[in-house]
Amino acid sequence: MADIIFEGRVYTCQPGESVLDALIRQGCEIASGCRAGVCQACVLLMDEQEIARGCQQGLSPAQQKLNHFFACQCRPDATVHVRRPANAGGRVSGILRCREQVAPDIYRLYVSAQMDYQPGQYVTIFKDQTTGRSYSLASHPEESSSGERLLELHIKQHESGALSPWLCHDLQPGESVSLLGPMGNCIYSANPQQPLLLAGIGTGLAPLLGVLKDALHHQHQASINVLVGATEPSGLYCTEQLLGLAAAHANLQVEFLIQNNRNNQALDPATREADIYQYCAENFPDLKGYGVYLCGAESFVGKMRKQCFLGGAAMADISTDAFIVFG
């Protein structure tokens, strides 16, 4: 059994137990979120460089050099000396500027915060010292509203969730939130001559919109096809914004796909009832040479990634932002 020396005290770590779980089990107040090495909420710092190296995948080169590591991914078999990084690992404070409801359970938030990011990356938002969840950025750093650069977030509310109901209701405009980031590499990096396929479901539209804005900002030359899926018509949002962009850019085509139009609602010409996997397979049978971006629920991203890869897209040309469930 390994010991964890944390802030001068000795804690035990059971075989197979992560540093994060061991410290929390013994009463330490450590921030956590995904337990999957994605949100960076649990990042701590360790003296043992060798052991730290094994649990740094996804951290920036600077963080790696400082021996930061994912406490949720580290299962040590020797004694480790662990501390919290300075200034909470670089959390910044933001202020909620405004919030609007855009679909029955989806809200669009604008947060002012000092942060350099690339559209499509994500941040981890904290409700208190220890509870964090990740949300993707739909904004572009070149946009500003009354001279202020705002982060745009799309949040789907989960009834009994730890963070989303708080973000969608309790947090009030003018109040501050603590953010960590940016992180992630679902960003526009294609060559301008490469056709693009951007597909997302639900609030997966947030990072997709970020990537799309950046592609247009860089005057992407080849075709850009955007597929946005939702379970029901009411789940679609930002449709006018997307159709406006499509009208202004000849190489951009946007389509909305409804899985189940139960009430036979009238659909506008850009919207159809279709299974997104099938629609994609039929309309994009050969994805060789494409740059593909897939965003939203993990199950969607996983299934679609396989489909697009088998459809000819190179693995290195498929970028994903998978909303894994925290826990």
């Binding site: 396989k306 890869f309 088998l310 190179a314 693995m315 290195a316």
Partner: peptide, 13 residues
Amino acid sequence: DAAVDIFYRKVLA
């Protein structure tokens, strides 16, 4: 990388 893509597609199928 290109060879891996081809091979991986084959075993997946």
